[in-house]
Design a protein around this nucleic acid. Structure first.
Length: 948
RNA sequence: GCCGGAGUGGUGGAAUGGUAUACACGCUCGACUUAAGAUCGAGUGCCGCAAGGCGUGUGGGUUCGAGUCCCACCUCCGGCACCA
């Protein structure tokens, strides 16, 4: 018997395919297209491990499937090779970065080519190629011309080890994401891109994208939009000095009892002459400056110093309030100053508690039940009602009365309605007596009013109850008999605080429990109804926000967590920023005709650490005539960050050789947007935001025709090492795909990676399990010997074939490769069971399997006498009618338990099936002596007999 | 803390509200082999001799029927985190 020699077969077909140009992109614009893209790799010195190809294999399978289904495919590959990792690798290995990158790319490419991927290598691009980065620079120039790129000297995050400024996105928990060093704040001249101007569009357009929810959510988090108001507080004493604050809760203005400035806030120094404890303030500022962000985050206890001698005026109450400096207020968010409302903000609350500052409540909480039971029904009006909630403490134990409702699954404190004209406290006393019988009460505390919105199940209406909340203590257990109708409503339980925590159903009652534990005060940060806010009392927060903003002469304002993109690096290995500085003309863009500004060859490319890039030392490169006045100019010596080239590369693949434009408009219109983009989810907040930003900009200047670049996105799940940890050289758990390909073949490797589990979920590498896919391929190989043109095309095989086509097609389309593989395995197992396999069926198997195992299927295909490549074969269609079995087995259940089976034809009438089921031998013993209440027939599936 | 996702055999994992554990790994037994490997065949959730019972993180609920829907809780993974 001939052997399945994967080495011979794979290298043979890889050569033939390359020679033929099989994977060259077709440009026939009359045909539908599919642009399938992998996030291009960063060619590191480590080479690929088995985790990397997972995504490439998936996109390969998907694009082959689309190609065979009649689409023009664009499935390219390239290299993202500028940036810190490549440069650091080069420095470490004492090589020029260019040489290191070339070497790494060659290694990556060699590894990829062994996998039989259908990339069109004629479109290969490399971000470090001047012909490519010419256009990266061109985009920068357009940004500059539109005022979206500007120079700034603000302090930025500086990595002392990488010796460069970083963007906020490049930090991970206050450390440099690349090297793990603590970053410092350092004022450096830098280029910044106004990504914030696109924040709203980046946020809004997310909704129309077919992306994994968690990636969209990450982007929403990252953009961090919040709507609020800008309010001005005057510094007391008629100095005409103001403190501006940004707040999302202007409705709580009457509760602002002090203010806080960030230590870096300029007003702190401006106020110095008035501050009586300047030494103390100065010392605090100094300490705060030294603290890294990490330290700030770790020590959560709040610190701060009051600015003695100055006070601010609350514009609503006109009262003078103290001003503090504290590092819990961040300089770079909002205005770097806040109005503190300790009653309704947890941070302010903690601070006020620590320093004994006044706490003024201005919001009565409103709780809207959002979970069952009692979830508010949308669209129904609310029935308003005044009521009481009474917390009743035991006379000797630490227990409280709780009601377990009998008609609904509720647990509450004691509640009741206030009749018109009655007082709240009297009602509470009356209710306690009626519902519990207890006689001797002592009022301990009045917690004010809590509002609750919920669906009243017994009354079947939405209820909005405004409850006065009281805490009573029983003096003794003297009590009288309760009326029987009260007993029917609920059971009375004595519960401890811990028990109450899980017992209470409504959110409003849970909140009261917190009041009980926290000495009657806690920060309630939700929306509610205003109190202690003259003329606004009784108004809902939502409305009060804008009314109070107006009242205090503030203005509506939107703010974002997203910072503008710090775009310059003080490093060598990046695209030079195409700007010339001229003493006379200022900042002048390099004329487009002079692009690219080529990165000069240098002998020393190590970072300087001075805030200037190594390029600054090459005077012959730096010195240049000013394009405007012809006078003496100097080139910008900062370079672009790693993320520049990858922010538009997908456009270049469409038209990689074009030297007139970054992409031809017609071609762009045909291939855009990307139909399937696939890669690591770690790019959620950098690459995927930056690229969307640039794309929207290019759309605005008319360079591209779609608002969004990536319509559908799939995030590839990681492959962990066999020890369950991330693969890394250091841990010694790296598996090299070359070894797996050598031992089992690329086809087996491809199938194994797809079969491991759901594509988007992470999984653990398990060398033991690879044998499964290998055995599967060997079965297919051996099956050829059973192929016969004369074989009977029996109905069983036909149904199996059509079912398989249907399921495999749907699964590949939905990126469910694991179940697609298992379907093919079922198919092969089925064919193994027959005497002879019809040739037509075997051909279908080869076509369906081809995207997964291109080499082996190609070999078998040619052995069968075919001379064309399988890649050019059409994907088979299925006939829905032929996916249905002629005879089906229906399960008979008695009371939901399987007790027998019935073979019927699918056309059988319902009553006939039921009759047969009831008469079935193995069923009788379960129904005898019982009354058959009901028989349910689920067509073609089961019969359920309900018998009691 | 907030948001997002997930908990199913010894293992990886399947299941439009309708036979839970497809497919695969592993394991057991048998065949072929001097032997090992490969291959082929049979078996493999748990308890029980059996009849049968119990089983999808835990506890409730809806339903003729729940891994799937609802509620509460627990655990794990990911994002954000003093963002006003």
């Amino acid at each position: 018997m001939r052997q399945y020699d994967h080495k011979k077969i794979e290298s043979k077909w890889q050569k033939r395919w390359a020679k033929d140009g099989l994977y060259k992109t077709e440009e026939d614009q009359a045909k539908p297209k599919a642009y399938v893209l992998d996030m291009f790799p960063y060619p590191s010195g480590e080479g690929l491990h088995v985790g990397h190809p997972k995504g490439y294999i998936a996109s390969d399978i998907y694009s082959r499937f689309k190609k065979m289904s009649g689409y023009n495919i664009l499935h390219p590959m390239g290299w993202d090779a500028f940036g810190l990792p490549a440069e650091n690798y080069a420095i470490k290995n004492k090589m020029h970065p260019k040489v290191a990158v070339e070497k790494n790319i060659a290694r990556f490419k060699e590894q990829l080519e062994k996998l039989g991927l259908n990339y069109d290598w004629e479109r290969e691009i490399n971000t470090t190629d001047p012909a490519y980065y010419k256009w990266t620079q061109w985009i920068f120039l357009q940004l500059f011309k539109k005022g979206l790129a500007y120079e700034s000297n603000e302090p930025i995050n500086w990595c002392p080890s990488c010796k460069t400024g970083l963007a906020f996105e490049d930090l991970e928990g206050g450390k440099c994401e690349r090297c793990g060093s603590d970053v410092e704040q350092r004022p450096i001249r830098q280029w910044v891109l106004k990504i914030r101007e696109y924040a709203d569009r980046l946020l809004e357009d997310l909704s129309e994208l077919e992306w994994p929810e968690h990636i969209k959510e990450s982007q929403r988090n990252w953009i961090g939009r919040s709507e609020g108001a800008l309010l001005r507080f005057e510094v007391a004493g008629g100095s005409e000095q103001y403190i501006e604050v940004f707040t999302t809760r202007p409705d709580t203005l009457f509760g602002a009892t002090y203010m806080v400035l960030a230590p870096e806030h300029s007003l702190v120094s401006d106020l110095q002459p008035k501050i009586s404890n300047w030494n103390e303030v100065q010392k605090y500022k100094e300490e705060a400056r030294k603290k890294t962000d990490l330290e700030r985050m770790e020590e959560r206890t709040k610190t701060g110093v009051e600015l003695k001698g100055v006070r601010a005026v609350n514009p609503a109450t006109k009262e003078e309030i103290p001003i503090w400096v504290a590092d819990y207020v961040l300089a770079h968010y909002g205005t770097g100053a806040i109005m503190a409302v300790p009653a309704h903000d947890e941070r302010d609350f903690a601070f006020a508690k620590k320093f004994g500052l006044p706490i003024q409540e201005v919001i009565e909480p409103v709780f809207t039940q959002s979970t069952e039971p009692g979830k508010v029904r949308d669209g129904l009006p609310f029935n308003h009602r005044d009521g009481i909630i009474a917390v009743v403490k035991h006379w000797s134990e630490d227990k409280y009365i709780a009601l377990k409702w009998k008609k609904v699954a509720w647990g509450t404190f004691l509640t009741g309605s206030i009749d018109a004209g009655d007082g709240a406290e009297d009602t509470a006393r009356k209710e306690i007596r009626e519902e519990t019988g207890y006689l001797n009460l002592k009022l301990l505390k009045n917690f004010g009013i809590v509002h609750g919105k919920f669906y009243h199940l017994p009354k079947q209406m939405n209820s909005f109850v405004h409850s006065s909340v009281f805490l009573f203590e029983l003096e003794d257990d003297a009590h009288e008999e309760i009326a029987p109708e009260e007993k029917e409503k609920h059971d009375i339980l004595w519960l401890t605080v811990d028990e109450l925590r899980t017992f209470l159903t409504p959110d409003s009652h849970k909140h009261i429990l917190e009041l009980l534990c926290g000495e009657g005060v806690c920060a309630y940060a939700g929306d509610g109804i205003l109190k202690n806010s003259p003329t606004f009392d009784g108004m809902p927060s939502e409305e009060a926000k804008w009314r109070i903003t107006e009242f205090a002469h503030g203005e509506k304002r939107v703010d974002y967590k997203l910072r503008d993109w710090v775009f310059s690096r003080q490093r060598y290995w990046g695209e030079p920023i195409p700007i010339i500085h001229c003493a006379k003309c200022g900042t002048v863009p390099v004329p487009e005709k002079d692009l690219p500004v080529v990165l000069p060859e240098v002998t020393s490319y190590e970072p300087t650490g001075t805030g200037e890039s190594p390029l600054a030392a090459i005077s012959e490169w730096v010195r240049v005539a000013c394009p405007k006045c012809g006078g003496e100019g100097k080139r910008e010596t900062n370079t672009m960050p790693q993320w520049a080239g990858s922010s538009w590369y997908y456009l270049r693949f469409i038209d990689p050789q074009n030297d007139k434009a970054l992409v031809d408009k017609k071609k762009e219109a045909y291939w855009s947007p990307i139909d399937l983009y696939e890669g690591g989810v770690e790019h959620a907040t950098r690459h995927l935001i930056y690229a969307r930003f640039w794309h929207k900009f290019l759309y605005d200047i008319g360079a591209v025709s779609y608002k969004e670049p990536f319509g559908r996105l799939k995030g590839v799940g990681l492959i962990y090492g066999e020890d369950g940890r991330k693969m890394s050289k250091r841990l010694g758990n790296v598996v090299n795909p070359d070894d797996v390909v050598a031992a089992y073949g690329a086809d087996t490797f491809r199938i194994y990676e797809m079969f491991m589990g759901p594509f988007e979920e992470s999984s653990m590498w398990n060398t033991k399990s690879i044998i499964g896919p290998r055995r599967f391929l060997e079965k297919v190989w051996r099956l050829e010997e059973k192929v016969s043109e004369k074989a009977l095309h029996d109905q069983g095989i036909e149904i199996l074939t059509h079912k398989t086509i249907k399921k495999v097609s749907a699964d590949i389309g939905a990126f469910r490769f694991n179940t697609a593989v298992s379907t093919l395995m079922v198919f092969v197992n089925g064919l193994e069971g027959v005497e002879a396999v019809p040739l037509a069926t075997y051909k279908i198997l080869l076509v369906l399997l081809h995207p997964f195992a291109p080499h082996m299927t190609e070999e078998l295909w040619h052995e069968l006498g075919n001379n064309n490549f399988l890649y050019r074969e059409a994907w088979p269609n299925f006939d829905e009618a032929k996916t249905k079995e002629g005879k089906i087995t229906v399960v008979i259940q008695v009371n939901g338990k399987v007790r027998g089976e019935l073979d019927i034809s699918p056309e059988e009438e319902e009553y006939a099936v039921k009759e047969q089921a009831l008469a079935h031998e193995s069923i009788k013993k379960w129904t005898s002596g019982k009354e058959v209440k009901k028989v349910i027939y689920v067509h073609g599936k089961l019969v359920n007999i309900v018998a009691v």
